[in-house]
Amino acid sequence: MNWVERAAGLRQWSKGAARAPHKPLLLLYALGRFQREGDGELRYSAVEEDLKRLLAEYGPPHRTSPAYPFHHLVGDGVWEVRTDRGTGSPGTGVRELRAAGATGRLVPELRVALRRDPSLLGRMARVLLDANFPPSLHDELCEAVGLDVETGPDVPGRLSTARRQRDRRMRELVLTAYEYRCAFCGYDGRIGTVPVGLEAAHVRWWAFDGPDDVDNGLCLCALHHKLFDKGVLGIGADHRILVSRRFVGHGPAARAQVTELSGRALTGPRPGVAPVAATHRAWHTAQVFHGDPRPARAAPSPA
């Protein structure tokens, strides 16, 4: 049984390029619990709030139920559900799972395999992260589900099941196109001649067929890259910055670094370089950006 391939091939709801990371999030959560506590069952009523939080923070912008993956992950051969009446899920409804005392855990064969090969857990976790989330979120997602695994492209023994290879030139091409300045705030820090804190962000995530092309990239500082991938920030049709109404920040730093960006034109790319393509902007707005955008900040009145 190739458990890494099974993790990479989870059957997910699909409609065009829509994100549906419900099953990967539940499996990551279950792997984290297994790593910390062994093979104890996870009672739905006890983990429901944890799963809600993960879906709200790392799932698609629309509301969704944690009952969905708890029930449907059974069909992928890595998860089992039991109730007071025996084996099998009572359905996809929250009430049914609660009323039946539903519990879930990794299937026995996978638990045996994880004990026999301690490296398997990390390899499964990494392929789930690579297939469903951008690298900027990997470390914090591992922390959120309680997983202790190494992330990053240079982890020894990393097993990739990806059908595409990343273009390692993209970072330099994107940073050059934006003249080594954050497209949101203009940050351009360097140590000597080496830029620091600047990253090439995919607008349409690589895991969702986003190409390694300049018109799918933004040069962003580390803060704004994280906020862009978390759906706090976005790009409007007029290439102006969107800020989610759901973002709350009361201090002057939050206002200056986030809320006051609303409506500001992107910095770059330099003349002659294609801006972010409309199809990639539209994907990010529909699949990552959270809620409605704030109104653009009013221009100051003339003195």
Rank of each mutant, 00 (worst) to 15 (best):
I191H: 14
G268S: 10
R115K: 12
H284W: 10
E260W: 06
P300F: 01
P61C: 10
L55H: 00
R245A: 15
L42K: 05
A67E: 05
Y44A: 03
T176C: 14
D84H: 11
C219E: 02
K226Q: 13
D215N: 02
V194K: 10
V273Y: 05
H72C: 00
G93A: 03
R63D: 15
V196G: 14
L242C: 12
G101I: 11
P271Y: 15
F208M: 01
G217H: 07
T87S: 04
E41A: 14
F133Y: 13
L28K: 13
G9F: 01
L73N: 02
K15G: 10
G157W: 05
W205C: 00
L261K: 05
L97H: 03
G263Y: 02
P66V: 04
L173Q: 01
D130C: 01
L26V: 06
S262H: 05
L198C: 07
F247K: 08
D76L: 10
V174I: 12
R95W: 09
T87Q: 08
L10R: 11
R294T: 05
P211C: 10
A56Y: 07
L28R: 00
R116K: 09
S136A: 13
T87M: 06
A207M: 07
V214N: 00
T161K: 05
E5H: 02
R115L: 09
R164K: 11
R246S: 14
L26N: 13
D188S: 13
A100I: 00
G291N: 09
G32Y: 00
I191W: 08
W205H: 04
W283K: 00
Q257S: 06
R63F: 01
A17R: 08
E199S: 12
D148R: 15
